Simulated scan of single mutants.
Amino acid sequence: MGPVMRTPRQLAALFAVLMVLSTAAFVIGVTVEQNQGQTETAVEETHSDERSEAHEEGENHEGEPVESHSEESETIGGIDLESTPLIVLGAALSLALAGLVLRWPRREVFGAAALFCLGFALLDGREVAHQLDEQAATVAVLAALALALHLGAAAVAGLALARSRDDRAARAVA
């Protein structure tokens, strides 16, 4: 068996690595999704122009449903989750949290980190479902990777939190 992570510093380092990787997956996924959206918009505009030209030439398209794939922004509580400022804030908070855990590997910090990661994992899970519904496999895979990494980081933070409680109990008994 390999070495067991025992110290808060070792767990903090593992947590930080997982957070950096999850942040990278998140940012890459958002970038890919935005680029796909721009490509789809350009294609829709081209098709729209072709339909307009065909209509002007007298071609009849009655009875054909007009498809609209316009991307509605994802919102929760009226907040656009895909706005650039919110994406930058999420990435910055994730990296700041990784630094905070490295600097102060304490029980309270690990507890806050675990909650943050679980919250982000919920959003990642929602994004996986949304991307699968949209049949956007690449973005769904990146969202699933971010989900797995956030859950891993939450587990590491939870383990560090549990170990810090065990250490306190052992010191109290001694």
Rank of each mutant, 00 (worst) to 15 (best):
F116N: 01
F15L: 01
G77E: 13
V30W: 07
T23M: 10
L145P: 04
A172H: 12
V32F: 09
A160P: 05
L159V: 10
E44P: 00
F110P: 01
V173Y: 07
G119R: 13
A155F: 03
R168E: 12
S94H: 06
M19G: 04
L132N: 14
A114Q: 01
T138F: 09
L118M: 14
L21A: 13
L123W: 06
Q38S: 10
G29F: 05
L100N: 02
S52F: 13
Q10T: 11
T138C: 06
A157S: 10
G125I: 05
H47F: 12
D166T: 13
T39L: 12
M1P: 08
S73Y: 02
L102Q: 09
P3G: 15
V30P: 00
Q135I: 06
G78M: 14
V128D: 06
E62M: 11
L100C: 09
R103N: 02
A98M: 03
A42E: 14
D49C: 08
R9D: 08
L161A: 01
P65G: 06
G99M: 06
R51G: 00
S52N: 12
P8M: 06
A144D: 08
S94K: 02
N60R: 14
P85F: 06
T23P: 00
T46Y: 12
E127D: 08
A155Q: 01
M5E: 03
R107I: 01
R171N: 05
T39S: 13
A143D: 11
G119Q: 08
A174W: 01
P65Q: 11
E108Q: 10
E72I: 02
T75R: 13
H130R: 15
D80A: 06
L115A: 14
A140F: 04
H61Y: 15
F116M: 00
E74L: 07
N60A: 14
R103D: 01
E74A: 07
S83I: 09
A154D: 03
L115D: 00
H61S: 12
Q135F: 09
E44K: 14
V27W: 07
L149F: 02
D167E: 12
Q36S: 09
T41Y: 10
A162S: 07
I76L: 11
L93M: 12
A153V: 05
V30H: 10
M19C: 10
S94W: 01
A174K: 12
L161W: 06
S70F: 12
L151G: 07
G90S: 15
S83K: 10
